[in-house]
Design a protein around this nucleic acid. Structure first.
Length: 343
DNA sequence: GTATATGATTGACT
DNA sequence: AGTCAATCATATAC
C-alpha cells in the first residue's frame, strides 16, 4: 500500500496535481467550487498540445534522455515483472493447449490418403490396388486408376501450395511482430517471455487456419474416394481368355477347386486380374456350381474334353504322361457325360 | 424391358 | 485368413 502511494505521488506530480488532491475528496470538491481543477486540466491539455508542437528532433532527444536515464533498466525490469505477474498469470490459465486431437486425426488421415506423406505414398498404392480390383479389362481399370491418381495429385498439390503459403505468411508475420515488439521493447516494458507468448498466439491462430485447410482437403479426398468407390461397383466382365483360364483350372481341379496362394497368383498373372479377383471368381464359381450342377454340366464337359486334349498333346510332345487333371476323389460332384459330350 | 449372367461386397463361420 | 451364402449392381442376351 505504501509503495503504491509513493508511485501515485510521483505520477500525479507529473500532471501538476498535489497529493492532497487525490487523497482527500473534500478538498477536491472544494477546489472544484473554486474553479481550480479546470485550470489544472487546461494546463495538462496545453502540455499535451505542446508535445505535438515539439520538433521531431526535440522528441527524439527527450526519448534518448529517457533511455539513457540510469534508473531506466531497473524501472523496466520492475514493470516487466509486474506485467508478468498480473497479465500473464491471468491469461496463463488458458495457455496450455493440449495437442489438438482433431488436428492429429486430420494429419493421420491425410498421411494415410497419401496427401501429406511422401509422393508415392500408401494412399496412391491403395488406390492402385482398389483400381485393379475394380475389374474389367486392364486398360479400363488403368484409365480409372490414372483418373483417380490425377485428381488426388491435384488435391495434393493444392494442399501443399496452400500449406506453404500459410507457413510463409506465418513466419513472415511472426518475424514482423517480433521485430516490432523488440523495437518497442526499447521504450515499453516488454519482456522476452511476452514476445514468446505473442509468437505462440500467432502460431495458434495460423494453425487454426491450417486445420481448416486440412479439413477441407480431407473432405475433398473423401468425395473423390466415394466417387471412386462408386465407380468400383461398375463391374466389367473378364475377357474370354481370362474366363477360359479360370474355368480350365476349376474343372481340372473339380475334386478340390481351391487354388493355393501361389496358384492364385499364377492365375491372376495369366488372366491380367488381381489375386482377390481370382478368389472372388472361385468363390462365386464354387457356390454357383454347387447350387446348380446341372446347369454347368455342359461347360464342365467342354473343359474336361479340352483338358484331356491338352494333356494328350503334352504327353505326345513330352512322351511322358503329365496330366494336369487330378482324379476326382470326393470333392465337388463331377459331371457325368457320354463319350460324345452329351449328358 | 425383362431375364439371366457375373463380378463384387458383406456378414457369419471355422 | 479363407470360405460360404446371400445379396447387390451392373453387363449382356433376348
Amino acid at each position: 500500500m505504501d509503495d503504491q502511494t509513493r508511485m501515485m505521488t510521483g505520477l500525479t506530480g507529473l500532471g501538476g496535481l498535489q497529493q492532497a488532491d487525490v487523497g482527500d475528496p473534500d478538498s477536491v470538491r472544494k477546489q472544484q467550487s473554486l474553479g481550480q481543477p479546470q485550470q489544472d486540466i487546461g494546463d495538462i491539455l496545453q502540455q499535451i498540445m505542446a508535445i505535438t508542437d515539439e520538433s521531431l528532433d526535440e522528441a527524439q532527444a527527450r526519448k534518448h534522455a529517457l533511455n539513457c536515464h540510469r534508473m531506466k533498466p531497473a524501472l523496466f525490469s520492475v514493470l516487466c515483472e509486474i506485467k508478468e505477474k498480473t497479465v500473464l498469470s491471468i491469461r496463463g490459465v488458458q495457455e496450455e493447449d493440449p495437442p489438438d486431437p482433431q488436428i492429429m486425426r486430420l494429419d493421420n488421415m491425410l498421411l494415410a490418403e497419401g496427401v501429406s506423406g511422401p509422393e508415392k505414398g500408401g494412399g496412391s498404392a491403395a488406390a492402385a490396388a482398389a483400381a485393379a480390383a475394380a475389374g474389367g479389362s486392364p486398360t479400363d481399370s488403368s484409365i480409372e486408376h490414372s483418373d483417380y491418381r490425377a485428381k488426388l495429385a491435384q488435391i495434393r498439390q493444392i494442399y501443399h501450395s496452400e500449406l506453404e503459403k500459410y507457413e510463409q505468411a506465418c513466419s513472415e508475420f511472426t518475424n514482423h511482430v517480433m521485430n516490432l515488439l523488440r523495437e518497442q521493447s526499447r521504450t515499453r516494458p516488454i519482456s522476452p517471455k511476452e514476445i514468446e507468448r505473442m509468437v505462440a498466439i500467432i502460431h495458434r491462430k495460423f494453425s487454426s487456419i491450417q486445420m481448416q485447410l486440412k479439413q477441407s482437403t480431407c473432405e475433398a479426398v473423401m468425395i473423390l474416394r466415394s466417387r471412386f468407390l462408386d465407380a468400383r461397383r461398375k463391374r466389367r466382365n473378364f475377357n474370354k481368355q481370362a474366363t477360359e483360364v479360370l474355368n480350365e483350372y476349376f474343372y481340372s481341379h473339380l475334386s478340390n477347386p481351391y487354388p493355393s496362394e501361389e496358384a492364385k497368383e499364377e492365375l491372376a498373372k495369366k488372366c491380367g486380374i488381381t489375386v482377390s479377383q481370382v478368389s472372388n471368381w472361385f468363390g462365386n464359381k464354387r457356390i454357383r456350381y454347387k447350387k446348380n450342377i446341372g446347369k454347368f454340366q455342359e461347360e464342365a464337359n467342354l473343359y474336361a474334353v479340352k483338358t484331356a486334349v491338352d494333356a494328350a498333346n503334352v504327353s505326345a510332345q513330352a512322351s511322358q504322361a503329365n496330366s494336369p487333371a487330378t482324379p476326382n476323389s470326393g470333392g465337388y460332384p463331377a459331371p457325368c457325360y457320354t463319350p460324345d459330350g452329351r449328358l
